[in-house]
Design a protein around this nucleic acid. Sequence first.
DNA 1: CCGGATCCGTTATGATACTG
DNA 2: CAGTATCATAACGGATCCGG
Lengths: 118, 118
Amino acid sequence: MSSDKCPLMAASKLLSRKWGLVIIYYLLEGEKTFSELEKKINGISSKTLSETLEDLVEMGLAERIVEPGPPVRVRYRLTEMGRDLERVIVYMAEWACKWLLKEDECPRPKIREGSAQS
Amino acid sequence: MSSDKCPLMAASKLLSRKWGLVIIYYLLEGEKTFSELEKKINGISSKTLSETLEDLVEMGLAERIVEPGPPVRVRYRLTEMGRDLERVIVYMAEWACKWLLKEDECPRPKIREGSAQS
DNA sequence: CCGGATCCGTTATGATACTG
DNA sequence: CAGTATCATAACGGATCCGG
C-alpha cells in the first residue's frame, strides 16, 4: 500500500497556501488587524490576504475578532493550535536566514514570550 | 516601515510549492527515484512531481543523479541545504500529528541518523 | 480610511494520455 | 522508468468597487 500516513500531507492545506506561514509569523508577534497585516506583508494582495485569513480561521489556526464600532475593527489572533506552529516557523526563519539571506538581513525573531493574551 | 526583511518571504518560493516540503520529508529517508516518490506521495500528479523536483534542484535543495543505463535510473538526493530543513520538517510533522491526525496514525519519523547537523 | 468583495488575467496543480 | 503533452480547475495578483 502506498497509503503511508504522512503528517505533512495532512498539513498540505496549510502548506499549500503561499502566505499561510508568513501570516502566522507576523501574528506570532501579537494580534493584528487586516490592514496591519497588509502593510507588514509586502507583496500580498488584499484578496489573497482575505482568503488566506479565512482559511486560517477555518482550519482553526486563527480567530477573527470583531470589535463593534464605530469604527468597526477586525483583529486576527492565533489560537493555541496556531501558536503551536511557533517552533516550526522559528526554525524555518533560521533556515532562511542561514541559506537565503545575508547575515545583516537576518532579523531577531520578534516572537512574544509568555504569550498569555486573554 | 513595511520593508521588514521577513525570512519566511525569502523562502516563499519553497513554501508556495504545495508538495515541496512533503517531497523533502520523504527524501530525508534517503535517496529516491521518481517513481518511488510518486508511489510514496499519494495524490501528487507526475507533472507536479516533475516540476517541483526541478524547482527543488534549481533552488539547491536537491540533486538529480542520473545513473547511465540501460536502464537509466534517476535518483534524487537532498543537498546539505535541503537536509538542513530536517528540524523544520520534523517539527511540522509533529505538529500535524498532534493537531491533525489521530495518535495511531502518527508515524515515527524515519529520518536517517548520522547526517551533518549544525 | 477599513475590511473586504468582484472582475479579470496569469500561474500552479490535477487527471489523463502518451512517449523514448 | 522518467518523465511530456494537453486540457480543466484552483490559487494568486492587480485593479476596482462598496457599505460603514
